[in-house]
Simulated assay, not measured.
Amino acid sequence: MGHHTKADLTVIRGMADGLKHVHTAFKEISKLNERYEDDLGHGDLSHAIGEFADNWDKSREELMGEVDTMAKIAKAAAEAYDDIDKQLAKALREAKEPKKSHKSGKGK
């Protein structure tokens, strides 16, 4: 027996949309150290928080790129599955249709 592949395109498209929302959330997060700079003062804690925030900003940029790539892959996968489904349905319809012959009915 053949193997069947089943893809829930609604879930895949939802995943792409969800990843876009994650990307947007990361993009809209302001720099952490700027939010609390006045509260932290100018000591070691402020320096440590500043380093953490700088590292977070770099990591956030990397995560944004990866999340964006994953969103694009999920969207492309849903589109590809949808296209394959349409092509297979067309092929099945055409296979079921009787072949039209081009007999002229005269002398051959």
Rank of each mutant, 00 (worst) to 15 (best):
M1F: 09
M1W: 06
G2K: 15
H3Q: 08
T5P: 01
K6S: 00
K6T: 02
T10P: 01
T10W: 07
V11R: 12
R13I: 01
M15R: 13
L19I: 02
L19F: 09
K20Q: 14
K20L: 04
H21M: 13
V22E: 09
V22W: 07
T24G: 03
A25Y: 03
A25T: 09
F26N: 01
F26T: 00
K27G: 06
E28W: 05
S30I: 08
L32N: 04
L32H: 04
N33L: 00
E34M: 06
Y36E: 12
E37N: 07
D38H: 04
L40M: 06
G43E: 07
G43H: 03
L45A: 10
L45V: 14
H47A: 15
I49T: 08
G50M: 05
F52K: 07
K58Y: 09
S59G: 14
E61C: 01
E61W: 03
E62A: 14
M64N: 02
G65A: 02
G65S: 01
E66D: 15
M70S: 11
M70R: 10
M70H: 11
I73R: 08
I73N: 06
A76M: 07
A77K: 09
A78Y: 06
A80S: 12
Y81W: 13
I84K: 15
D85R: 15
D85P: 01
K86Y: 07
K86T: 12
A89C: 03
K90F: 03
E94D: 15
E94W: 06
E94R: 15
A95I: 06
K99F: 07
S101K: 12
H102Q: 12
K103W: 12
G105Y: 02
G105K: 10
